[in-house]
Structures are given as C-alpha cells and as structure tokens.
C-alpha cells in the first residue's frame, strides 16, 4: 500500500468492568486500513471483532467501558484520534467520515419511520438543503443499492421490505454522506444464503464506487476468500494472525487459523468425512491467564519446546513478509502441522 492508511489503530484495548471482574474484550489491537482496501476480521463469537469496531466508531458507552490506545482517522484536515477525541467530535465523524452497517437488518431500522424519513435524517445531518433535496438524494441512493421502484418505495416502512432489501437500505443510509470508511459487522449473517452473495457483491461495488476503506467483520471464511485484501484472525480478544488473504488461506501460521480453515466442509468430501471442529470452548475473558489463550484447544502445543505456551504469552511476530502470527510453534513444526490437518 503506497497510500497512507485511512484508519490506523494502535494498541487498542477495550474492557468492560463487570461484577465478576474486568472483561478484556479487545486486547492490544493494531491494524491499518487504506481507502480502497478491504480488511476482513474473522473469529468466533466473543473474540472481540465487533467490540473493536464499535470502539473505532465511538459507539461504546464511555461510562461503562475502559478504552485505551489510539485509532487515527487520517482526514484531509489531519489525523484525529477517535479514542481520545471529544464525544462531540467523534459524533460528527460518524455517518460522515465513517459509517457502519450491522448484522440484523430486521431490527436495525426504526420500525415507526419510513425508509425515506430515516435516509433523509442521515443526509440532513451533513448537508444543507430542504427535505425535497434530501428525498431526491435518498431515492438516488436507494436506486444505487438496487432497490427497484425506489421513488415509490422511499415512502414505505421497514416492515414492508424483505431482509435483503432492508440490508440494502442500511447500506444506502450508511453511504448517503459518502464516508471514507465503512465497517460492515457481519452484514450477511442474518440473510438467506441466496441473498448473501448479492449483498456482498453490492458492498464491494459500493466500495469501488466510493473508494472506501472497508472493514468486513465476519465468521464466514468463504466471504473472506472472496473479498478480502487483508485478514485479521481474532481469538479471545487478540489478533492471533494477520496477513494477506492468500497467505492466510494457503499458508495459515496460527493453529487456530489452521483449525478454522480445516472446519470448512469441502464439496466432494462431504460423504466420506465428518465435519471437523476445533475442540473445546474459548476461555473466559475475565482474568486471562498468562500464556497463550489458545493452548487448551491447540493440537500442537505439545510440540513447542519447554512449557512456553503456558508460561509466556506469544507476541504477534512477522513470520514471513507482511504475515504476522502469535504462536510459539517453530517454523518446521508449523509446515508439518499445516500438512497434517490442512490436507492442502
């Protein structure tokens, strides 16, 4: 990437104080996304994917969250750290510099207001002009995201739209002010399989159209392979592997990533093979013990010399060019491991 990244996240920590202790939901996260680039964030539920992006958007309740670290938006007017900036400053970046779409389009739109009303509301936050101009822009956006008969449907209510159409509306609303960064938090999870690829295609088209930086949060590795430039694999609040999409796909370095890829059923093998799962559960994020968070579920921890996995938390190291991993496993063992369970 020759361009300066639009978003630079540095050592971001997000924690929630609870009665049982401090939940460390996001742990020392650093990454960058440039305009036109797609970063996929994968990991199972509770791995800190959404928590991290909500922190970037400033959508956590500051009273109930402890956030440290930095997240710079490199705006034309200069960089702004959205973590340390005033609430009011961050609010005025939301919907304008950065936008977000959510998992469940069924509940993400206000049921009492028409689609048009909600789009115009978003538009008028950052644009001068009367309602008619806003409506014109709303129809334009609905048209762009592929809502048929947009001029008529703009006056309809969310419950009159199907799930896929509602997600299109959400996308139209998120993009109405031409943001530089779009965070899509599992945008296809709640949709029918047939609709999923359409929505994904739409997001990619829109990314090109608006030249946006895109963070795609998902646990669907198929989606990742299709659209991502870079991939962050998250586990127990940490990035455990980070690299180019091809690297992650063909040369996964972390046993968790290897396990994730291995759990995808492959057409042709379905009859002969049971679905493969990673055994065990992710650890509690309260008082994470010393050492590697994944070691209890890791198939290869016994190959690490000494008792390193239990005593020392692995750091995110560059194992090969622009390919980072948080694992103690020596390279030779890793190649063996990949062959053993990857089968690739």
């Amino acid at each position: 990437m020759t361009q300066k990244p639009f978003l630079e996240v540095k050592n971001l920590n997000v924690a929630f104080p609870t009665e049982d202790g401090l939940v460390q939901a996001s742990n020392d996260i650093s990454f960058t996304v440039a305009r036109g680039e797609t970063l996929a964030v994968v990991g199972e539920s509770g791995s800190g994917k959404s928590v991290t992006s909500l922190a970037v958007m400033g959508l956590h309740d500051r009273k109930r969250t402890q956030i440290t670290g930095q997240a710079f938006l490199n705006l034309e007017s200069g960089p702004v750290d959205v973590i340390s900036a005033d609430d009011e400053v961050v609010r005025k970046l939301r919907g304008k510099a950065m936008s977000m779409i959510f998992q469940d389009p069924m509940s993400a739109l206000h049921p009492y207001y028409s689609i048009g009303n909600q789009l115009i509301e978003a538009w008028s936050l950052y644009n001068e002009g009367d309602k008619a101009a806003g409506k014109k822009r709303a129809i334009e956006m609905l048209d762009l995201v592929g809502i048929p008969d947009a001029a008529k449907r703009v006056d309809e209510f969310p419950h009159q739209f199907s799930g896929g159409m509602r997600q299109r509306v959400m996308i139209a609303m998120a993009l109405i002010n031409n943001p530089s960064l779009l965070i899509a938090d599992e945008p296809t999870t709640a949709l029918d399989v047939t609709v999923q690829s359409q929505i994904l295609q739409l997001i990619r088209d829109m990314q090109k159209e608006f030249n946006m930086a895109l963070i795609l949060i998902t646990h669907d590795l198929g989606v990742v392979a299709e659209v991502a430039d870079r991939v962050n694999v998250m586990y127990a609040g940490k990035i455990v592997e980070s690299g180019g999409a091809e690297d992650i796909y063909y040369r996964p370095d972390h046993p968790y990533a290897i396990g994730l890829l291995n759990s995808i059923p492959k057409i042709g093998e379905l009859d002969s093979k049971r679905l493969v799962a990673i055994p065990g559960q992710p650890p509690s994020l309260i008082n994470l013990p010393q050492g590697c968070s994944f070691r209890a579920r890791c198939a290869f921890s016994d190959r690490v010399p000494g008792n390193l996995c239990a005593t020392t938390t692995p750091t995110l190291d560059e194992k090969s060019t622009d390919h980072f991993s948080r694992c103690h496993l020596p390279e030779a063992e890793l190649v063996k491991a990949r062959k053993e369970i990857g089968g690739k």
């Binding site: 609010r91 970046l93 939301r94 959510f102 509940s107 978003a122 959400m170 998120a174």
Partner: peptide, 29 residues
C-alpha cells in the same frame, strides 16, 4: 438498547435527537 437506536447513533445523531425522535417514539407508544 434496541438495534435501531445504535443505528441512529451510528448515523451521527446527537443524544437529544436520539432520545426525542427515536427512543421516545417507540418507548411511549
């Protein structure tokens, strides 16, 4: 805690408008 309130916040609305237009409309019905 509804999703559409989070959407309203993600749009960049200020807290007063979120309360007045989005939260109360649904909560007071």
């Amino acid at each position: 805690s509804e999703d559409y309130i989070r959407t309203a916040r993600a749009k960049g609305l200020n807290e007063r408008d979120i309360l007045r237009k989005h939260t109360l409309r649904a909560a007071l019905a």
